[in-house]
Computed example of a mutant assay.
Amino acid sequence: MNSTELDISWYTTQSTFTGPGPFAEWVAALAPDPAALREVASGLVFHFWGNGDITEHGFAPQRREEIDLRYAEDIFARLHDLNPAPLDTERAPTERVIGCCRDFTLLFVAMAREHGIPARSRTGFATYLMPGWAVDHTIAEVWDAGQRRWRLMDPQFALGYQDPTDGAPLDLLDLPRDRFLVAADAWNRCRNGESDPARFVVSPDQPAPFLRGRPYLRHNLVLDLAALNKYEMILWDIWGPLDLSTEVDAETITEMDALSDLLRDPATKIDRVRAIFDDGALRVPAVIHTATPPAGVPRPITLR
C-alpha cells in the first residue's frame, strides 16, 4: 500500500486496543527507539504453548486465562501486578503475561505509538518458525522515515534468533517479506499456485480443518484488514465472514481475491482500506464471538 504523511501519522495514535491507559507514564519512561522497544516487548509475554505446558515453567494452571486479555491497558495492569519495576527490567518467566504472538506485537505497537512512532500490527504467516510450514503469526510494521518504507519487525523473539530452516540469524528488525507473508500476499500466492494452501497452518499438529488451508488464509486476511484499521483483534476472534467452517464458498473466494488485490496494490491509500473495512460484514461489530483454544467453542464478547 502507498503511504502519505497523513496515513503514516494515523498510526502514531493509539487505538482502543493499544492505549496503555493509566500505565502511559510506565511506557513513556522507555527509550523512544523501535529496536529497544522491540527488545522490551520480547521479554513481557510467555507463549501459552510455544514452550510446552506452562505449569512446567512454574505457572499456576489458571493463568492460562490470560491469553484472552484483549486490551494493552489490561495486559500492562497484569504485568504491573506481577512486577512493578520499569518495563525494561529483565523479568522471570512467571513475571510475564501468558499470551501469544499477537500480545508481543500488541504491546510493542502500544509502546511505539506512545512514543509517536508509526507502528501497526500485521497478521499473516511466518516461514521461519517450523521448516516446511507457513505458520500463523502476527508481527509489527514500523515506518522507516529514512528509507520511506514500512519495515517488518518481530517482537516475539530475542535478538540472535536462528531460522530453523537454515540455521542463520534472522533480522528481526527488518524481516524479508518472503519470510513473513502478510495475509494478502499469502492468499495471493496460494491462489496463483505459487504456494500450497495445505502448508499454511496454525500449527502442523493442529488437525482441525478450519485451522489450516484456505479457511485460515481467509481468517488471517480479514484479521489483517482489521489490524490495518487499528482493530488489533485476538487471533481466535470471529465475526462477519469468519466462522469455524472447513470450506470457503466461491462467493467468499471472489471477495477475498478482491480484498487481497486491494491490500497488495502499492497505489492503495489508507482511506480506501478504511472504506472497504467500513462497508458490510468486514467491519468489526460491537459484539463478536471468540473461540479460545483448545476447545474453540465460540462465546459472545462485547467490545469496549
Rank of each mutant, 00 (worst) to 15 (best):
V97C: 14
G193W: 15
A267P: 00
I270W: 13
A275S: 12
W49M: 07
L30P: 04
A286D: 10
N2I: 13
G213I: 14
F48R: 08
Y128D: 06
A250V: 13
V142A: 01
I270V: 10
L172W: 10
N2C: 08
A183G: 05
H289S: 13
V201H: 02
A36E: 10
A291E: 03
I117A: 07
S260E: 00
V97K: 05
A24R: 14
I238W: 02
Q62V: 11
A184T: 09
D163C: 07
A77S: 06
I253V: 15
P204L: 14
P294K: 08
T246V: 15
T105K: 09
I98D: 01
V142M: 01
L244W: 05
L30G: 03
D224Y: 09
S245G: 15
T246K: 04
P300V: 06
R64C: 04
D237C: 11
M153K: 01
Y128K: 05
V142R: 01
A77K: 01
E56F: 07
D166W: 14
D174R: 13
D185K: 12
P197G: 08
A24K: 13
L244K: 09
T292K: 14
T292Q: 09
L129K: 11
D33T: 00
Y161Q: 02
Q206N: 11
L82K: 12
I75N: 02
Q156M: 13
Q156P: 02
A140N: 08
P155K: 09
I67C: 06
L6T: 11
H47Q: 01
F108I: 05
R64A: 10
I238G: 02
R63Y: 12
L303P: 00
P294H: 07
E90I: 14
R299T: 11
M111K: 06
L79H: 05
P86L: 13
E90S: 09
T16A: 14
H219M: 08
R38I: 02
A184L: 10
D185L: 15
L173S: 05
I67N: 03
A295T: 07
R96Y: 10
M233H: 01
G99D: 02
N192A: 02
L170T: 09
G52R: 12
I54E: 02
R218F: 07
G146N: 12
P164V: 00
F46H: 13
R218H: 11
R199I: 02
I253Q: 08
I234R: 08
G52Y: 13
L82E: 03
E141M: 10
